[in-house]
Structure formats: structure tokens, C-alpha cells
């Protein structure tokens, strides 16, 4: 295999055209490497080479976005590179946004592997971290050598379609995708070191930043519960005896929909739990302890509710990815709406 052909994107400043006063220059395709491209080329050695450089003013890109995208994509198409590298942009905000935006266009429109790099506070990071790899750099061009030394190997891996390791290994900003890898030291040792730093007030890096959970505003209350159709949903894994759909005991890949027309009571002979996260004996003895069909039938007869919906939905919450349960719930919620269900009682173990 010959050298990989690399196309490099930089702004007017790194091309030596000028600073802010020249930020309006239109995109231009040049042959060969320039500015930081020279450092990349020496890093690439015999593996790859920057054959062309695109130079674009930061103001031009950000203010005339659609035009800039179109012009640049045409240039990329004409060069047909194996790899597209943008920046690094360090803490230059508009340059960073431009690098990430155009890299994402090249990746998504043309399917060419891309890489850029910038400082963590550059707005380009938060805008694009979940869409492409962005190498973490220092906040100024003084960190150029360090940035190039991370970008060269990662960009080669991307160009060759090799497996990309975890962010901590490869040096990119975490993308939100959790990737396993083997650390140098065992977890307990890392915990002791982290605690010593934390107690001393020194900087430390958590291995898992706490998430923000999103919120949905509450729906209005039901007007008259005695007329309402009530549906039961559970994450406690209640299924007909024998688990006919073979819902997994953990990390469930599906949900169950079961008809309870005429079912007045769940018994040990008819229902059980598929859930692997708790002692199943109590639910297996009497599944009403998790999915209270018996009492809701009683309420139905007494007129305390309109009626109990003839289907219930069930999943195993145990170890099941939040995303999967979300997909399940979106799907059965549509069915519930179509079936005219007014309210839902969702039980969890």
C-alpha cells in the first residue's frame, strides 16, 4: 500500500495570510503542506502525506456557512483524499467550530475519515464531540507538538479503519460512548491515588463524569378516574409462565405484550418473573405482588376505575440499557395511545 493521501484544513492565520483582518478570505485549495501541516508530514513519515491544504478565513466560514461548506466539499471531492485533518484549533473558538463543522460534513457527506483537535473549552468540542473524534489539545499553539503527536497516530488508525481505543488511551475528548480498555493499574490503586489527590486539593480526573438527566413536564391529571382506562406496565419482568418470548434475565433486548382479557388473578401456575436482579421467589409465588392485576380487577368491578386495559407491557429493568428501555417504551406508549388508554400505572422492582 502506498502513502495515504491526506487533505489538511487550516485557517488564514496558520496559512500565514494574516490575522483577524484577513479572516474574510474565501476557501482556497493549495498543493502541498504548509504551517502545521509540515509537522504532520514529518510525523507521518512514510505512512501518509499531506498532498493538499485548504485555507479558509474563519469569518468567511462562520458567516457564509452554506457557501463555505459547498466550496470546500467540492475541493475535497476533487482531491479524493484517504483522510481529512482539520486544525488543531486549540482555544480559537471560530476556528474550532469551523474545523469540527467541516470535518463532520466531510465525514457524513463523503464518508472520508476525519480528525480534528482543540482545547476542551473550545465551543467546537461540545457541539461535535458525539459526532467525530476531536483530539484534546492545550489551549494555545504552544501545544502544537503535543497535539500533532496525538493526532498523527489516531488519524492513521482512522484512515485504516482500525479499532479505536478509549479516549484516555487515544487522547480524544470523550464522545459520550463508553469504551472499555485495560488501565495500567488496578482500580483499587487508582482509587487510592485519586483520593490522595482529592484530599490534598490537587486536580484529579474522574473516570466517569456524572450525567445530567433530562426531564419531561407532568401531564395534566385525569379528570375522572372512575371512567378511565388504566393500563399496567412493569419493569419487573412479569411474564406468562415459561417466559414464551424468552425475555432475557438481564440486559433485555425486547419487551413483552400480553393479553389479560378475563384474567382476574395472577397465580404461581400462570405467571412468573424473568427478572434476574432480585430474589424471584416472591414474584413467582404471586405475580400480583409486582403486577397488581387482582386488585385492579376488584377496582374495576367496584367502579373505582373505568376499566383495566386488556394488555400489559413488561420488560426486565435489570442491567438493561436506558436507551433500549426508552425505545421499548416509545413503541408501547404509541400502542397505548392508539388503544385509548387514559392513564398508566408503572411498577418497578
Amino acid at each position: 500500500m502506498g502513502k495515504l493521501k491526506v487533505l489538511h484544513y487550516i485557517n488564514q492565520f496558520y496559512a500565514g495570510i494574516g490575522g483577524e483582518e484577513m479572516a474574510d478570505v474565501a476557501p482556497e485549495l493549495r498543493e502541498g503542506a504548509m504551517g502545521p501541516g509540515l509537522a504532520f508530514n514529518s510525523g507521518y513519515g512514510d505512512e501518509a502525506e499531506i498532498t493538499h491544504t485548504i485555507v479558509c478565513g474563519d469569518s468567511f466560514f462562520n458567516e457564509r456557512l452554506d457557501e463555505a461548506k459547498e466550496l470546500i466539499l467540492d475541493m475535497v471531492k476533487s482531491v479524493k483524499p484517504d483522510l481529512f485533518v482539520a486544525g488543531p484549533a486549540f482555544n480559537a473558538g471560530r476556528y474550532g467550530v469551523a474545523c469540527a463543522t467541516i470535518a463532520y460534513e466531510v465525514l457524513s457527506q463523503l464518508g472520508i475519515p476525519v480528525l480534528t483537535g482543540m482545547y476542551e473549552e473550545n465551543p467546537g468540542v461540545d457541539m461535535f464531540r458525539d459526532k467525530l473524534y476531536i483530539v484534546a489539545t492545550r489551549n494555545s499553539a504552544a501545544g502544537m507538538r503535543d497535539a500533532v503527536s496525538k493526532m498523527v497516530p489516531l488519524s492513521l488508525k482512522l484512515a485504516r479503519g482500525e479499532t479505536i481505543g478509549a479516549s484516555a488511551e487515544e487522547g480524544y475528548h470523550p464522545t459520550g460512548v463508553r469504551v472499555n480498555f485495560f488501565e495500567k493499574e488496578r482500580g483499587s490503586k487508582r482509587a487510592v491515588k485519586m483520593l490522595l489527590k482529592k484530599m490534598a486539593g490537587k486536580p484529579f480526573t474522574t473516570e466517569f463524569p456524572m450525567p445530567d438527566f433530562d426531564r419531561v413536564p407532568p401531564n395534566p391529571a385525569v379528570k375522572d378516574i372512575t371512567k378511565a382506562t388504566v393500563a399496567l406496565v412493569t419493569s419487573g419482568g412479569i411474564v406468562p409462565k415459561g417466559n414464551p418470548d424468552r425475555i432475557e434475565s438481564s440486559s433485555a433486548s425486547k419487551y413483552g405484550e400480553y393479553d389479560i382479557t378475563g384474567v382476574m388473578d395472577l397465580t404461581a401456575e400462570t405467571y412468573e418473573t424473568a427478572h434476574g436482579g432480585y430474589d424471584p421467589l416472591y414474584a413467582n409465588q404471586d405475580a400480583d405482588r409486582v403486577l397488581p392485576v387482582d386488585i385492579l380487577r376488584e377496582f374495576e368491578a367496584q367502579g373505582k376505575i373505568g376499566k383495566l386495559h386488556n394488555k400489559f407491557y413488561t420488560t426486565v429493568g435489570n442491567g438493561t440499557a436506558v436507551k433500549s428501555s426508552k425505545v421499548f417504551a416509545e413503541e408501547f406508549s404509541r400502542k397505548l395511545v392508539n388503544d385509548g388508554v387514559d392513564v398508566v400505572i408503572l411498577t418497578s422492582t
Binding site: A166, F182, G187, S188, E207
Partner: peptide, 10 residues
């Protein structure tokens, strides 16, 4: 979760 291994994630 006692940190017995080197396996981790980011």
C-alpha cells in the same frame, strides 16, 4: 467493583 482488575472505561 473492589477495583480488583485493570479493566476500566472512558
Amino acid at each position: 467493583e473492589l477495583g480488583f482488575n485493570r479493566l476500566s472505561a472512558r
